[in-house]
């Protein structure tokens, strides 16, 4: 990943966030577009509806903009769950002080055997579908992902001389982990966070598509794909819009993640 692409991705993201956060009037106008109005259904792009309308007359631009909020909140929730549990676990396992690390690593392998879809199906039987179900399911799968990455990055650090020096200075494992190991793996964690947000958006689209993620009427990219599919011969535009949005956002987050992980590991900077 070249720095330029990464900067473009970061810039685009910043623009999107600014649009959502700083311009409330925009969201108000867009909000009106979410209303169902059957007299303008399936209308092609015009100056009233820049991206046209769907089978219920909802403005496609509004739908795709608000779908972004659903996708991002699920992906962020999943990353928060995954990082806040997986990161300490990986760090703890890397210290390899007891059978604790074996237990953590085996537990990781175990959670890894539950694809987010299966977890979502299981959680669905508890809470039904919704943003919470999707975020929780993807988040649980993120735990071993973060734990593995942090473990892999932190493990070699523990054999370094400055760790031995810290031990001689009488510092405990916890202090060493927090003040010497964590700062060195923080960049790896940051890269992983960016990548997992991207993959979380993909996973959310899949879950909402099959109906166990975000529920209507909340706009969601996966849901839009699902509804557009039956209209593919009449209005292919409806399927293309959310698809391009998903691909763009996932591309931005995963590219940024790649770039950050290259920065974190100088050996991989060329690859």
């Amino acid at each position: 990943m070249t720095p330029r692409t990464a900067w473009i991705a970061a810039l685009l993201l910043a623009v999107f966030i600014a649009v959502y956060a700083v311009v409330p009037t925009v969201s108000e106008i867009l909000n009106r577009g979410l209303a169902i109005s059957l007299d303008v259904r399936l209308s092609p792009p015009s100056h009233n509806h820049w991206l046209g309308t769907d089978q219920l007359g909802r403005d496609s631009l509004s739908m795709v903009v608000f779908g972004c909020l659903s996708s991002l909140s699920v992906a962020l929730m999943a990353v928060i769950i995954g990082a806040s549990i997986g990161l300490p676990l990986g760090l703890l396992a890397s210290a390899r002080t007891s059978i604790m690390s074996t237990v953590i690593l085996r537990l990781n392998d175990f959670i890894f055997a539950f694809p987010a879809l299966v977890t979502a199906i299981l959680i669905h039987t508890l809470f039904g579908s919704g943003i919470l179900t999707a975020g929780l399911a993807i988040g649980l799968f993120n735990i071993p992902v973060f734990a593995r990455t942090i473990y892999g990055a932190a493990r070699p650090i523990w054999t370094k001389d400055f760790i031995r020096a810290a031990r001689l200075a009488g510092k405990g494992n916890l202090t060493i982990a927090m003040s010497h190991v964590l700062p060195l793996v923080a960049s790896v964690a940051l890269a992983q966070i960016s990548t997992q947000i991207g993959l979380g958006i993909l996973a959310e689209a899949g879950l909402s598509y099959v109906g166990i993620g975000v529920t209507p009427p909340t706009p969601s990219w996966g849901r839009m794909l699902n509804e557009a599919q039956t209209l593919i011969a009449i209005a292919p535009r409806l399927a293309l819009i959310p698809g391009v949005a998903i691909a763009l956002f996932v591309f931005m987050f995963t590219s940024l993640g790649d770039y950050l992980s290259d920065l974190a590991d100088p050996k991989r900077r060329d690859g």
Binding site: A205, Y209, L225, I246, A247, L248, F251
Partner: peptide
Amino acid sequence: LAIPNIWLAIV
């Protein structure tokens, strides 16, 4: 990598 497989399916 960024393309959701359901979207690819639709396309």
